[in-house]
Every structure is written in C-alpha cells, then in structure tokens.
Design a protein around this nucleic acid. Structure first.
Lengths: 226, 226
DNA sequence: AATCAATGAAAAATCGATAATATTGAAAGG
DNA sequence: CCTTTCAATATTATCGATTTTTCATTGATT
C-alpha cells in the first residue's frame, strides 16, 4: 500500500498497473465522462495495451466505486448524482473526523514532521486545479490521517477522497469563483493538529470539506453538471 | 448491487463471477488459509476454468481486502492479525451504528417488513455455523442497515462483515463454548429497531458485535489462531 | 400499429499459447 | 561455513484468436 492508503499499484511495473493508474486518473479528472461506456477495444487502443490488463484494471476500479461492472455487458464509469455526492461528503466527514482524531491521539514527532512537510509541499504548489496541485493536496490530507494506524480506514478515506475530487474536476473552473482562502484553511488545520488540539483540528477539517461541498452541491442541484 | 450491498456478481452468469463467488467463500470460510499463496494454475484446475476469470476474480477480491496483490508476484490471501481484527471490529461498530441510526430514522413499513422477514429466516435456520445460517445471518444484519439509503456505506459494512466473519470461521468450533443466547440478542435488536428506539437498537447491536469480538480477540491474543 | 422472432453485427468473455519475471537450488568464490 | 552467482524451473503476465453473449435491425404475424 502506498502513502495515500489506496491499494494502488506501484509505479509502472506491470501493464495492468499502468492501465489502472491511467484509467483512474482519466475517470477522476473527467476525461472519461460519468456513465460512459468503457469499451475494452477502444481503451485497448487508447492505452496501447492488451485486453487482459484493461479488464483487470477495470475490475480493480469497480471496487473503488469508480467503475460499474454489468454482468456480461461490460463496464461503464460510475454515474454521478446529487445523492451520491452528498453521501460521499457525509461519509467523508464522518470517517476523516474519526481518523484525524485517532491520528492526533497517537501523535508522534515523526508524524508531525510528515504533516509539516506535506503542508510545505502543498503551499509550494501554486496552481490550484493542476494535476500536481491535486496530488500534493491529497497527500497533505492523507498525511493528516495516516497516524490513525488503521489501514482499512485509510483506504476508505482515500477512496472517498477520489470520489469527491471527481466532482471537483467536473465542476472545473466554476470552483475558482469561490471567495475563499484555502491556504489559510489548510494552515489552520495543520496548526491545530500538531498542537494536539483535536476538537479544533476536526472542526476546521470538516468546515474545509463542507464549504466546497455546499458549493458543489449547489451546482449539482442546478443541473450545471452532468 | 445485490441485497447485501456487496458488489457481488449476480448468480452464476459468467465464469468470472462464479470464480469470484467461489473464491470469496473459500477465503471467508478458511478453506484458503490466511497468507496462502494463490497460484493461478492451481485455482484454474480447482475451479475448472481459465486463467482470465481467475485473475479477474482475484482482482475484485483484492479491493475487498480479502486478497493481496503483489506486483508481478501473484496473489495471496490477506493475512490475519490481532490488530487487523480489532480494526475491523472498531470500524464495524462505528459504521454499522451510523447506518442503523440512519436506517431507523428513515423507517418505513416496507423496511420493517423486510427486517421482520429476515429475522424470521434467521430464527428458522437452526444450525449455527452452517453455511446456510451464515447467509441468513448476514442478510438479517444487512437488512437492518439497508434503509440508510447509502450504498457506499452499505458496501463498506458488507465488506467489513465478511472480513469479520472470516475470523469467526477461523475460530471454528471454539465459538460454541460461548454461553450466550444469540437468538435473544437478535430479537432484542429487531424489536428496538422496528419500535424506532434508535438508542437501544444501537446499543444492542454494538453489544452483540463486541461480545463475539472480545471472545475472538482473546483467542487471537493467545495465538490460538493463525 | 404493436409485438415478437430471426438475423447479423458488435462487443464481451474466455481460452490457449507465448513472453516476461521471479524463485529455487547448485556450484563457485570468499 | 556463509555468501554470491548463475542457470534451470516455476509462475506470472500478456497477447492474439475463438467462443459466447448482447444489441440493433429487419421482417413477419397478430
């Protein structure tokens, strides 16, 4: 398991793992649209690989809730909906809250350093919305939770993070209209966490998520997405 | 998705799905031991099918945390440990508590009938420990949660249920030495749930899990398992 | 006009064979 | 005696071809 807690194949070892990484990115970033039929042959050509790696990668993605498998009728990307989004947001808040509190309860110097480092990288990554930014953003949030010593919980959080970020990508540039100081929000969470201030860290984290959540939820309700 | 909320292939349609169902059962029931190497060729012969369905089934099981995928070194069943067990128990209690409360909050006549029916089938299934019993037992617990209207949460609970039941199977007959009236525990949960008594239902459910949990945890600590 | 069955095309699922990779065990060297 | 190296073996991963299933279209029948 990698740093994010996701059961993500490492690097570019096998064709299956390359396919998994590529497809996951394509779905999360919206290159493959929600509900889109995923034809094996099309993907095979697109990723320049055989059918077996594609099928295996899609099987893995099925259990990440990013792909649906229809018995004998192939695969398609998961649909989006306001209900689905709200479910993700709610679960995320519950599980990350749990993980963060546990993480802080177990806090060690090593963990504090990891979190500070992750935060530094996040600050350095200027362009919000870019692929590089999203990567360090996720890394920061996962680092906060990593000390909970709970691999399954981490995996759930990582999965939910990806499901959520998919909606962020779909909203695209609309998100930039938000008048928020996200950097300030991150710093606040970091400070509270390393100070061992569980309650405040949790509140700040959940607010951080809910602010984006309400905004996206509004877009979904208007039918601006999908 | 089926009644349990698990992303389980339906029936015996494709070879992949048969393989998935069979392998999952074999792992959960301990026919395949924890940490055991899963050689493609061996399974291929054992299940009388090709390598592709086996590999796909194993990929699916990977994301259920029942199988580990080692880059270019094949598959093996997930290891067991006291930490892993405790993590499963803790998460299960948190998530099922959440789901049950939501389920009760949304309660409808249809749901009540579903739960009563599931409970009846559970009572009728005499022989505890048998495969048939375990099936209706899971069905009962999932029925309790089903009304939470939260597919992802259901899937998590179903997954955790299977992970947990695996330890129960490994403990095997040792469990029978417990002096408990499990039937009474189930009835208590049922009554509280359909009466809309959220707090009591939740407490009874968690006690139900923790009683078994403590017992199993004891066995694990003694090194009686694994 | 609507329903149903047959047909052909498209796609998915599966198989068998091959290529790539890891593991094992024996021999050589320190 | 232990470690390292290398070849033989076992196993995984992947490909290309075949089989099976689904889907869409057409034409017949009620």
């Amino acid at each position: 398991m990698n740093i994010s807690g996701q059961a993500m194949p490492t690097g570019d070892g096998s064709a299956t793992q390359r396919a998994y990484n590529t497809l996951r990115k394509m779905i999360v970033t919206g290159v493959l649209k929600p509900g889109e039929k995923l034809k094996i042959d099309g993907l095979r050509q697109r990723l320049d690989t055989g059918a077996s790696p594609i099928r295996e990668a899609l099987s893995l993605l099925t259990s990440d809730n990013l792909v649906e498998r229809l018995d004998q009728r192939g695969f398609r990307t998961a649909e989006i909906s306001a209900e689905n989004f709200n479910e993700i947001l709610t679960l995320r808040c519950t599980l990350e809250d749990l993980a963060l509190r546990e993480s802080i309860a177990n806090r060690t110097q090593d963990w504090e350093e990891d979190v500070v480092l992750a935060h530094h990288r996040l600050r350095r990554a200027k362009t919000e919305g870019s692929e590089a930014f999203e990567e360090v953003h996720k890394a920061f949030h996962m680092a906060l939770l990593a000390n909970a010593q709970s691999p399954i919980l981490m995996k759930f959080c990582s999965q939910l993070y990806d499901l959520n970020i998919r909606y962020r990508y779909l909203a695209g540039s609309a998100l930039n209209y938000q008048k928020r100081d996200v950097g300030e929000e991150h710093s606040g969470i970091l400070e509270a966490a390393i100070a061992g201030n569980t309650q405040e860290a949790s509140e700040r984290l959940l607010t951080h998520y809910r602010l984006t959540g309400e905004f996206l939820s509004g877009l979904l309700g208007d039918g601006a997405l999908g």
